[in-house]
Design a binder for these strands. Structure first.
Lengths: 335, 335
DNA sequence: CTGAAAGCGCTAACAG
DNA sequence: CTGTTAGCGCTTTCAG
């Protein structure tokens, strides 16, 4: 059988309370007994049961992570960065791909609660703040990453989406483009809204009139990006550049362009968003707006741990700057 | 406070034992009391504590998943497929990226054991079977996915790597290639060995002599694929095709070729392995050997759950067939 | 069919 | 400094 605290206590000739104290480095214990206990512990290869300790009100050292789809490189990278930091802090993370389905979100959250995770990090769209608010009400530590949700009081880490949209668009403008389209994944989502707002701001600043025909909505996948871009390019020969609100969509538009025998960047410039591994792999390499994924991941777990340990600190909102990564998918428009 | 089984019992005017029985659909309970209890349970929004139940010897409904790197698209897709099946079966999965570091593997395994996960799925290289054997000895259910380890008695799901190497190489041969190089990620790993064996078998079958100069080792990343391919192409102008043992390496090869002004597939044909999303995104789209990732994921969790529930069934070894996915990175060699 | 009671492994007062 | 003891929330005999 598994070795328990009783085995250690008996073997060491002390009480379980003593053993518990040396485990938790609490209470006053003589060097002597402490050493003896420690010795026995690793002689017997003892590993305290987190389950038992959790039952007495301690932590489970487990975090839940809700995201739309682990197979999406952006979220895989986010997950990895979170996992890394969590691991450093002695936490594990359980992954929950929701496919943006409210149903799955609910089921996962319910499961996570039953398992008494110490906190939940959310990277999903969470359409209805109701779910979220409920979590907050129940005092379950929650933190959002890469998703805004102004109406709810939780910790948040995200990139400055407005700034990102602005950077992307400005860069295109600097390169001489005037007919610039946007493809966004969904206008419901705050980040899309903000990126588009940044886009419009750049346009405005440059005195370029905003043309609603040039903004397209799709969901997020290469395929739908391709479709959206196809429609766009079909209708408007005039457009010389597109700002795709994520790399997947950017790649879709590259593919659509290629199918229409448009060369990139000569016939069409495109800039993406996220700077996932995909951006380095497409041809041409994608100029894109980088999110500081490593940093964001580390920060959310810092935040949520602070919340878990420290109690109710104020809800933080950390907005990190995006960065333009120039590769080869943008050039000056053809005359 | 959180509502417990006592609250339900009191409210329903029964004992906690009765409540427990209705939760576990065990024991004989009258329809009447059962319904009453159920009603109260969801009136009070009761959710049984997995932690408490686990302490009494029940399951934690949690699986550990060890893999090299979640940010690697292949493993992200594996993880996703495992997560999906696990979720269907009421299990959660905690992700552990080991970076193939023995150290991390050990730490993660230790953590997972402390948390009493019901089983561990391993997709990591696990160099030393010692760790693995220890797990088996401790009767912790273990299953391997996409990793062979003939020396240890555990459940295994993998693709027929030999067949995959054979398919890839044969296809190249059919297309008229004779000077075919291989880039593998590491010859220590069984799957690489097998793929190379398949490669050699195809060569042999076609009466093409095996040239050791044409096999290169690298680790697995686009960058190292690029380096390996660069060296290869530098030295041997003769080679007209390369079989890269995974998509990342294939992409590295494509990039190296491009840098040397070689056109793909005209100057150099390449076929990859895995059929990750990357294969659809590179230019040209990569002809590659597909692993049935969905299926593999579903099968490992089936296996490990059988092990968890059914006790010690025989160790299964499931070898799934790979499939050649033809895209555009292969053509006949230039005359 | 239902309930009382003894744990599961550990923590946290409270005594000594 | 160390031990006793009462739980944590749930499962599981064993009586009734």
């Amino acid at each position: 059988m598994k070795v328990t605290i009783y085995d250690i206590a008996k073997e060491a000739g002390v009480s379980i309370a003593t053993v518990s104290k040396v485990i938790n480095r609490g209470g006053r214990i003589s060097e002597k007994t402490r050493n003896k206990v420690i010795k026995i512990m690793d002689e017997l290869n003892y590993q305290p049961s987190v389950v038992a300790s959790a039952l007495t009100g301690k932590q489970t050292y487990t975090l839940g992570l809700l995201l739309p789809d682990l197979a999406n490189p952006f979220f895989a990278e986010i997950a990895r960065s979170i996992e890394d930091r969590a691991q450093e802090m002695g936490f594990n993370v359980v992954i929950c791909s929701t496919d943006n389905s409210l149903d799955k979100e609910e089921r996962y959250i319910s499961l996570l609660k039953q398992k008494s995770v110490d906190g939940i990090i959310i990277a999903t769209g969470v359409r209805n703040d109701a779910l979220l608010k409920e979590l907050v009400r129940q005092k379950l530590p929650v933190a959002l990453i890469a998703r805004d949700m102004p109406a709810v009081a939780v910790d948040i880490v995200l990139v400055d989406d407005f700034q990102g949209g602005y950077l992307a668009t400005s860069y295109l403008i600097q390169n001489g483009h005037k007919q610039i389209a946007v493809i966004a994944e969904d206008t419901e989502v705050m980040s899309s809204k903000e990126r588009i707002r940044g886009y419009r701001h750049a346009l405005e600043e440059a005195g370029i009139p905003f043309n609603p025909e040039l903004v397209r909505i799709s969901d997020f996948s290469v395929k739908s990006g391709k479709i959206a871009a196809g429609e766009l390019l079909q209708g408007l020969k005039a457009c010389t550049a597109v700002f795709a609100c994520n790399d997947l969509l950017a790649i879709g538009t590259i593919q659509a362009a290629r199918e229409m025998k448009l060369s990139i960047p000569d016939d069409l410039s495109v800039v993406g968003f996220d700077n996932t591994i995909l951006a380095t792999i497409v041809d041409p390499p994608l100029t894109t707006i980088a999110q500081p994924i490593q940093d964001m991941g580390a920060q959310v777990v810092n935040m949520i741990l602070r919340h878990i340990n420290g109690g109710h600190t104020m809800n933080q909102r950390m907005v990190l700057p995006p960065e333009l990564v120039i590769r080869s998918s943008v050039s000056r428009p053809r005359k």
